[in-house]
Lab assay of single mutants.
Amino acid sequence: KELVLVLYDYQEKSPREVTVKKGDILTLLNSTNKDWWKVEVDDRQGFIPAAYLKKL
Rank of each mutant, 00 (worst) to 15 (best):
L28Q: 00
K21T: 10
Y52S: 09
K38E: 15
S31T: 09
D9P: 07
E2D: 11
W36M: 07
K1A: 13
Q45C: 10
R16E: 12
D42S: 13
E40I: 10
E2G: 10
V18M: 10
Q11S: 12
A51L: 12
G46M: 10
Q45G: 06
R16D: 12
I48P: 01
N30H: 08
L5T: 06
T32D: 15
P15R: 10
K34M: 10
E40H: 08
S14R: 10
V6S: 02
A51E: 13
P49E: 04
G46S: 04
N30A: 09
L28G: 01
K55N: 07
L53S: 04
E12V: 07
F47T: 03
K34V: 12
D43L: 11
N30C: 10
I25V: 14
Y10D: 01
E40L: 10
N30Y: 06
L3H: 11
D42E: 11
W37Y: 05
Y10W: 08
L3R: 11
T19V: 04
V4M: 03
T27A: 11
G23R: 02
L26P: 01
E2H: 11
V39D: 00
T19F: 03
V4Q: 00
K38S: 10
K21R: 14
L53H: 00
E2Q: 11
V20I: 05
D24F: 07
L5N: 02
Q45R: 11
V39T: 01
T32H: 13
Q45H: 10
K38W: 13
G23D: 07
V18E: 02
I25D: 00
L28N: 01
T19H: 04
N33W: 09
K55P: 09
T32R: 10
A51P: 09
L26Q: 01
L29V: 14
A50T: 06
V41E: 03
K22H: 07
I25M: 06
D24C: 08
G23M: 03
K54Y: 11
G23N: 07
V39G: 00
E40T: 08
K22L: 05
K54D: 07
V39L: 04
V4S: 02
W36Y: 10
N30K: 07
Q45T: 13
R16I: 13
E40F: 06
V18S: 02
Y52D: 04
W36Q: 04
K1C: 13
V4F: 04
L5Q: 08
L7P: 00
K21S: 10
E12G: 14
Q45N: 09
K38N: 06
L53W: 00
D24R: 11
K54P: 01
W37C: 03
W36D: 02
G46P: 03
L29H: 05
K55H: 09
K13E: 08
K34R: 12
L56F: 09
D43F: 12
V41W: 07
S31L: 04
Y8M: 14
D43C: 14
T32N: 13
T27I: 15
L53V: 15
V41H: 13
A51R: 15
E12F: 10
L5Y: 10
T27E: 11
W37G: 01
A51T: 15
P49V: 02
I25F: 05
E17C: 06
V39A: 02
K38H: 12
E12R: 11
K1R: 13
K34A: 13
K1L: 15
L29W: 04
D35C: 11
L29G: 02
K21Q: 12
L7F: 02
L26G: 13
W37N: 01
E17P: 06
L26D: 00
S31M: 08
T19Q: 04
L3D: 04
S14Q: 08
K13T: 11
L56I: 15
E12A: 15
S31Y: 08
L26N: 01
E40R: 09
G46Y: 09
L3G: 03
P15N: 11
N33G: 09
S14K: 08
V18G: 02
G23E: 02
V39E: 00
Y52K: 06
V41G: 07
V39S: 00
L56K: 03
N30T: 08
L29D: 01
E17M: 05
W36T: 03
T27H: 14
N30S: 15
F47Q: 03
Y52M: 10
D24E: 12
L29S: 03
F47C: 12
T27G: 09
K54S: 11
R44L: 06
D24H: 08
V18D: 01
I25A: 02
D35W: 15
L53E: 00
N33T: 07
G23S: 03
D43Q: 15
I48N: 01
D35A: 12
P49K: 04
R16F: 13
N33P: 05
E40V: 11
L26E: 01
D35M: 13
A51M: 15
N30V: 08
V20S: 04
L7H: 02
S31K: 07
Q45P: 06
K13G: 08
A51S: 15
K22P: 02
V20N: 00
D35F: 15
I25R: 05
Q45L: 07
V4K: 00
G46E: 05
L5C: 07
F47S: 03
V18T: 05
L29Y: 03
N33Q: 10
R16S: 13
T27R: 12
W36G: 02
D35T: 12
T27V: 15
V41I: 13
Q45M: 10
D35I: 13
A50V: 07
V41D: 07
S31C: 11
T32G: 10
E2T: 12
A51F: 11
N33K: 07
K22T: 06
W37M: 02
L53F: 02
Q11R: 10
N30Q: 11
I48S: 03
V20P: 00
V39W: 01
D9E: 05
D43T: 12
Q11L: 15
T19S: 15
Y52G: 08
T32K: 12
G46R: 05
L29T: 06
A50L: 02
W37P: 01
K34L: 11
L28V: 07
L29A: 04
I25N: 02
